[in-house]
Design a binder for these strands. Structure first.
Lengths: 246, 246
DNA sequence: TAGTGGTCTAGACCACTGT
DNA sequence: CAGTGGTCTAGACCACTAG
């Protein structure tokens, strides 16, 4: 079980080393707050320069899995709480952890003209085409959230013709079919009470507490891909996030 | 106005270059989606190696201020929304943007024994000493939030003897007096309705929508420094955050 | 004193973009 | 084609930590 790198792949060495270290962390072989092998040791083991090892470590530090102390070494962080930028997966995972099954009910799937607000969020001209996907999220067949997703139609032409989003993951289709990788998001969260029509859709009473979440999600090239407005039942859903100060 | 580096400071070159670029971005001299000077040009201008320039750029990329495209160059991102990890500052800033003045009313400031939950969050033994700071946040003398902060007393001994947190910023004192830099946080957010006693403190009606925020904040060495439970009036406060997928 | 991570150099080759 | 960022090397010196 000696570590080794594959030179015949397009995956850079630092990514392979990062994956190697992450696997050790997630398997528990590297336990929280214990030291990892030093940079010099790793660079010798893998047969790469220390800068390359440092690159791998830096990635893991910035994602909160490792931390470094000058003169002492590199250490494993405590495991992070769920980071659900990917709200779809996050939602499924959260509900799974509670032993619930998840599904979606599509209310609307259409190409429409962007309103002024949507156009501003997606940074496209007003009246440009956007995909509207309006879905109810269910856990054990109980409605938990109402999601309105708006996508820049230019980036994912024909997406509604070939997919049924009551079954498929929107993010998976964007990634696999359109090579749209969601990299980061900007989000606002507010608490408010359910209106009558929202209450009906979520099978709750008017006046129920809701989390009102608005998010714009960007590619790694800072292009807005998706704008989502969601409401979540306050009693069933906890939103979790990791925040950084940098 | 030629760029230059100061070799007589402990500030590394890449930090100086980062500050130089950030100033250009924030002043508007580098406009969104325009190209910055190339890495090779910058390295020649500053008289450093390209790796050092790359280091500076990488910092700005990971904080969302720049993005890179292979073969094309490095570009300025759109300005980010407020990142209020520092909730205190974030709160003040948000309210300032609305033209409101902010202040705090201290309800409790005491050293107490940690409950099981607090001890778990701060990763200290149960019954260990923690500082409890219970404050009401006001905007234009109107109560907006109720914050309960718990601090590991070992890390900030005597903090209550010398400070009045109705005036001073807790985070500023932690930073300046105890060298405790808050680096990242893990946060849960839920919506719920105000209880009678919460409603009284915030001068609202029972049943009002509230944002219920729980956050543990860590140093750059992954040490928990603070655990905060806050409730915010849903009608007055919007929580904003930047999320990353990495 | 030996070992650690932090910073930095002066190159190199690659794939990719636009002309 | 010339220019770009991405990756990588094989060193170097520094401040810091621990025994």
């Amino acid at each position: 079980m000696k570590p080794s790198l594959d030179p015949d792949t397009s995956i850079p060495y630092y990514e392979q080393i990062r994956a190697y270290l992450l696997a050790k962390i997630e398997s528990g072989e590297f336990r929280p707050h214990t030291r990892t092998p030093s940079e010099r040791v790793l660079s010798e083991q893998f047969g790469v320069s220390r800068m390359t090892v440092k690159h791998a470590i830096k990635e893991l530090v910035s994602s909160g899995r490792l931390y470094t102390r000058v003169g002492k070494g590199t250490f494993v962080s405590d495991p992070p709480i769920t980071q659900n930028l990917n709200m779809l997966t996050g939602f499924s995972e959260d509900m799974e952890a509670l032993g619930k099954s998840t599904s979606s009910r599509v209310l609307t799937a259409a190409v429409i003209a962007a309103t002024a607000k949507i156009a501003r969020e997606l940074r496209i001209p007003q009246e440009a085409h956007v995909v509207l996907l309006r879905r109810i999220r269910l856990a054990d067949n109980e409605p938990v959230a109402l999601e309105n997703s708006y996508l820049n139609h230019t980036l994912c032409p024909g997406i509604l013709d070939t997919h049924d989003f009551s079954m498929e993951s929107l993010y998976a289709v964007l990634k696999n079919e359109y090579q749209l990788i969601l990299s980061y998001g900007e989000q606002s969260i507010q608490a408010r009470l359910a209106t009558k029509s929202e209450a009906d859709l979520l099978s709750i009473q008017k006046g129920f507490p809701l989390l009102d979440i608005m998010r714009t999600t960007f590619s790694d090239e800072a292009q807005p891909i998706e704008y989502v407005e969601s409401i979540y039942r306050g009693d069933l859903y906890v939103f979790r996030a990791r925040l950084t100060s940098v």
